Simulated scan of single mutants.
Amino acid sequence: MSINAILGQCSSIEGPEKRLEEHLILVDDMRIRLGNLQEYFNQMQAPQRPIMSPDEIRDFLARKFPELVAEKHNDPDGWAFFLGPAQQEPSSNCIVRAAQHSQGGTQFELSVSSRLERTEKMVMFCGNEDALRQVVDAQLRIYRDHL
């Protein structure tokens, strides 16, 4: 077992070695991108209109992001959205998930940020279509840049 750390990256077999400075630039870039997501998180949590159901989120994402593939999930009922055909861990291409919350409303997971930060990024979704579009755009950018 090992812990991934910047200093251990010089022994990577996945590509050319990077200098410490290059790794620090990537870390700083990731902090900026993930920090900007907090604004979108806040938009999603502020009630603005009737709450979108997981099925309404699926319909919206199908129209605005045709490259995403929706996969039905149960327990809780909802949808996972993948960039292309679904791939599971460790190289999952899941971008976001929307599920019916047990106490009502829609629970939303930022799957890319959850994987990168190694912590679950879940919110109750109360935002509008614009907030949803911005969050999914941000998750797609982060996925393409870092995974």
Rank of each mutant, 00 (worst) to 15 (best):
S102R: 10
G15P: 08
R141Q: 14
I95G: 09
C94A: 07
P85A: 11
K18L: 14
P16R: 11
S114A: 15
N42L: 14
H73W: 04
P54T: 00
F81E: 09
I6A: 10
D28V: 02
G8V: 00
A86V: 05
Q139T: 07
I51Y: 05
R115E: 08
P76D: 01
E71R: 14
S92Y: 00
H23R: 00
A46I: 08
I6Q: 07
E71V: 15
D59V: 11
V27Y: 15
A99H: 04
L37N: 08
K72S: 15
F82P: 01
T106G: 01
Q45S: 11
A86W: 10
M1K: 05
R115D: 12
Q107T: 07
D55A: 11
E17H: 08
E22G: 08
D145T: 09
G127T: 00
R118H: 12
E117R: 15
R133Q: 12
G35V: 01
I95Q: 15
W79S: 08
P90N: 06
D130R: 10
E89N: 13
V69G: 02
E39C: 07
Q107Y: 06
S102T: 07
A80N: 15
R33E: 05
A99G: 01
Q103W: 08
S53E: 12
G8Y: 01
I142N: 05
E22F: 05
L24V: 10
L34R: 03
K64D: 14
T119M: 09
P66T: 05
E89Y: 10
M30L: 12
